[in-house]
Write a protein that binds this DNA or RNA. Structure first.
Lengths: 129, 129
DNA sequence: CTGGACCTTCCAGTGCAGGGGAAGGTCAAG
DNA sequence: CTTGACCTTCCCCTGCACTGGAAGGTCCAG
């Protein structure tokens, strides 16, 4: 299978697959005599895994770590668990920060509900911010 | 006042102030005969405004829009209100997406609580993801 | 008159996940 | 034999807000 066909099957682009190979997410592809990349159909499953990892909010570097462990012949379960835990903690923190920001902006917005341009000195640029 | 002193007063770096000037957040500074930037003390208030805008989650480009309106002699109140509304909507959406992602990962994590490597086929790389 | 602190410009890189496009090779159909 | 779709490598660009560093100029104290 050539790169374009694989890309379409996996719901991505040829450009992205070359990028994944360069990043070590896909092993260097076999080549046809003329130099075209030639993929086994199973490669699509690996790309699907990359997509599942992305859907779980993992970076390509983290997904690569999992694939490397698997390629070494080991089961990556524990590492996956650690990554999920770390990602979860990050997300909780991000949510907390966004919630705080939302509260801040909500308050600013309430103050700015009835703008009175005359009371805004140019020095402060905008008294609602 | 030279750039280093202004930077320290405003809690930032000389590098950043040059960058702000380049981005149009600060007007081109006056120059001493030898070419050094020479700032009026009021410039610090403008930098403070930039910081308040950032604290409200606005991008430098958005903050620049507000400053441009003010520099045109108008009061930017309404534009500020629109920006805050837009930012608020973005934040709500980001929070919702993160919450959904958190739920997804929480579920994955629960499934992976007691990893059974033997049941993970190398084909799927990791059955918990 | 020398050292060091400060300033100038310009170029380049950071992290993330690719995208755009040039210049050229390959392959099958018409 | 040519056209067009596909492939190859290569390098640069995107957004965001800076940051680092090189090469050189300025200013003040000792």
């Amino acid at each position: 299978m050539r790169i374009g066909e694989l890309a379409e099957r996996a719901g991505t682009t040829a450009k992205t697959l070359r990028f994944y190979e360069e990043q070590g997410l896909l092993p260097p592809a076999e080549r046809t005599p003329s130099g075209y990349r030639d993929y086994a159909p199973e490669t699509a499953a690996r790309i699907d895994f990359v997509h599942r990892g992305q859907a779980a909010g993992l970076t390509l570097a983290q997904i690569r770590q999992i694939l490397d462990i698997r390629d070494d012949g080991a089961a990556p379960c524990e590492h996956v668990r650690d990554l999920l835990d770390a990602r979860l903690a990050e997300i909780e923190q991000q949510i907390a920060q966004l919630a705080a920001l939302r509260d801040t902006i909500t308050e600013l917005r309430r103050d700015a509900a009835h703008p009175e341009p005359a009371t805004c000195s140019p020095d402060q640029v905008c008294r609602y911010l």
